[in-house]
């Protein structure tokens, strides 16, 4: 079997440490004791983090995780399948309003509301994916751009959904018997859902679905010739990607506690796209890194005031100039350098 890999992962091959002896070892997410140690340490760090930070920083970190989640989902579409979306904010908005109405209007339990938000967005993703069967590149980007703008316009003009003049308040829900009132509770909710979805993304990309997506990215005609059902896998990519954005939207609704259509504009779509590319196309950690970095810049540099957009743009340009493969590409290069260090 041929395993098609996007470029950055090839950096892993070579180096005596990475010799793989079996298929199981090849497919393992975590390799060796050092890998497990890192995972355990990271998990422990994420678990104790909210107890070390003040509520404000827990809020910020939670917001960053939500954005990283959108980026991971978008990366499945852009980085793995090679389709573009300039309207991801539409899915994000559908998820946010879906979860909010699930919780407030229909009084659904939290997991149901979140899943509903994701599935609602996924359904929209499926529909947007249909034109992708005929269109590609910039032509497809217009469809997605239009979708994002249409969602915004519908929200602004549909008071029953958007809450009209007052907007839509989302009180902190309860997860079963536990009310999620504190910042930490919401952090753990977001982190839990986030880790689950990121793990799912890892598994998805290693499965036949991921391989089909990559094949489509490399050449959809060739993929079709080798038996990949384009219709199924392209729409699936849109659906899954939208699902991530939808769930993230639902989490954002819970975190911020208030929704207003103006929060969901084209500018957000662009920044989602920037996260994926700056982080690293076609890798899961790339989406996470990009989401965290692009999301964090406004918080890190908020004291710059009116200089912020300028600095923001310069950072994006600098990353792309220095490392066209994104942050994750740079990380791989650094790691490889250290692994073979004395040589």
């Amino acid at each position: 079997m041929i395993i098609i890999r996007p470029w950055p992962q090839q950096g892993r091959i070579g180096g005596a440490m990475d010799l793989r002896r079996s298929y199981r070892e090849e497919m393992a997410l975590v390799r060796g004791w050092s890998g497990w140690l890192a995972v355990i340490a990271l998990t422990a760090a994420l678990a104790v983090l909210p107890f070390l930070l003040s509520g404000y920083l827990v809020y910020v970190v939670t917001h960053l995780v939500i954005q990283a989640l959108v980026a991971v989902g978008l990366n499945l579409l852009v980085g793995y399948t090679g389709q573009i979306s300039l309207g991801h904010v539409g899915f994000f908005a559908i998820g946010a309003y879906g979860a909010a109405h699930g919780l407030v209007t229909f009084q659904l339990p939290l997991p149901v509301a979140l899943a509903g938000a994701g599935l609602g967005a996924a359904a929209a993703g499926y529909l947007v994916g249909l034109p992708a069967l005929r269109l590609s590149g910039p032509y497809l980007s217009i469809v997605t751009l239009g979708f994002g703008i249409a969602v915004h316009q519908v929200l602004t003009n549909w008071p029953a959904v958007s809450g009209g003049r007052i907007g839509l308040f989302v009180p902190r829900p309860a997860l079963g018997p536990w009310p999620l009132t504190g910042d930490r509770a919401v952090y753990f909710l977001v982190l839990g859902v986030g880790l689950l979805l990121i793990l799912a993304a890892y598994n998805l990309t290693r499965s036949h679905v991921g391989r089909a997506w990559i094949a489509i990215r490399e050449s959809d005609l060739a993929a079709q010739a080798t038996g990949v059902n384009l219709r199924r896998y392209k729409t699936l990519a849109f659906g899954v990607s939208a699902f991530y954005a939808g769930v993230a939207g639902g989490l954002a609704a819970i975190l911020i506690g208030y929704l207003e259509p103006q929060m969901f504009t084209f500018v957000e779509s662009v920044s989602f796209l920037a996260m994926v590319v700056v982080g690293g196309l076609g890798t899961i950690p790339g989406g996470i890194l990009g989401g965290l970095l692009i999301g964090a810049i406004p918080y890190l540099f908020s004291s710059l005031r009116q200089w912020l957009p300028l600095v923001f743009g310069l950072i994006i340009m600098a990353v792309m100039i220095v490392e066209p493969w994104g942050l994750y590409g740079r990380w791989l290069k650094i790691r490889r350098y250290f692994k073979s260090w004395p040589l």
Partner: peptide
């Protein structure tokens, strides 16, 4: 103390929380 929110609600929330808590 002035914090920039760029007219975005999530950042306004973060700002006010920072102002109150930190």
């Amino acid at each position: 103390e002035i914090r920039d929110d760029a007219y975005l609600p999530p950042r306004a929330v973060a700002n006010v929380r920072e102002l109150a808590e930190r």
